[in-house]
Simulated scan of single mutants.
Amino acid sequence: MFVPDRGATDTEIAAAFDGRCSGSLAKLLRRWNGLDLDVIRIHAVGDSVDSLPTVADSCHGTVIASDPSGFRYVQLPDGSISSLDHDGGTLVSVAIDFDDFIGNYIFGNRAAEFCGDEWAADVASSLA
Results as ranks from 00 to 15, higher is better:
R6F: 02
R110W: 10
T90D: 14
A111C: 08
A16H: 01
I96P: 07
G34F: 00
A95L: 02
V45I: 04
F107G: 09
T90A: 15
H43R: 11
A65H: 06
V39F: 09
R31D: 01
G23F: 12
A56R: 11
S69E: 14
G7K: 03
H60C: 10
G23S: 15
G88Q: 10
F71A: 10
L127E: 14
C115S: 15
G108H: 04
L37V: 06
G108Y: 08
S58I: 02
L37N: 09
L37P: 08
S80M: 06
I81D: 01
A8D: 00
A124D: 14
A112K: 08
R110A: 12
V123P: 12
F98N: 03
G116L: 04
D78R: 01
D10P: 06
G34W: 00
G89L: 08
D10Y: 00
F17H: 00
G7Y: 01
D97E: 10
I81Q: 03
H60R: 11
S80E: 06
R72V: 10
V123N: 11
K27M: 12
D36V: 01
D100C: 05
K27N: 12
A120R: 03
S80W: 04
H86Y: 14
R72E: 13
G23D: 15
F2S: 06
F98D: 03
F98K: 08
H60E: 12
S69K: 13
C59N: 15
S83W: 07
A111H: 09
C21R: 00
R110Q: 11
S69W: 11
W119K: 07
S66Y: 05
G103V: 04
R30Y: 00
G89F: 07
F17R: 00
Y73R: 02
L84P: 02
S125H: 14
D10L: 09
Y73W: 04
D97K: 06
D50C: 09
R20H: 13
D78M: 05
Y105C: 06
V123A: 09
D57S: 14
G61C: 09
S80Q: 06
I106S: 07
N104A: 15
Q75S: 07
A128R: 14
G116D: 10
I13P: 03
N104H: 15
D87W: 13
A44Y: 05
V49C: 07
L76G: 05
A14P: 02
T62I: 11
R41S: 13
D36G: 08
P77K: 09
D57R: 15
T11V: 14
A121C: 11
A124E: 13
S126E: 15
I64H: 01
L28W: 02
R20F: 10
S24I: 04
A8K: 00
S24G: 12
Q75M: 13
T11M: 13
L127Y: 10
E113A: 13
A26L: 03
L37H: 08
S51M: 13
Q75V: 02
C59P: 14
I13R: 00
D18E: 11
T90I: 12
T11N: 11
S126L: 14
R30G: 01
A111D: 10
F2W: 08
G79M: 06
K27A: 15
G88P: 04
G46V: 01
G79T: 01
D87C: 14
L76W: 07
F98P: 04
R30S: 02
H60A: 12
T9H: 01
I106T: 05
D85W: 08
S48L: 11
P4E: 03
L84F: 07
P77R: 07
A15T: 09
D67T: 05
W119E: 14
G88Y: 13
P4N: 01
L52V: 02
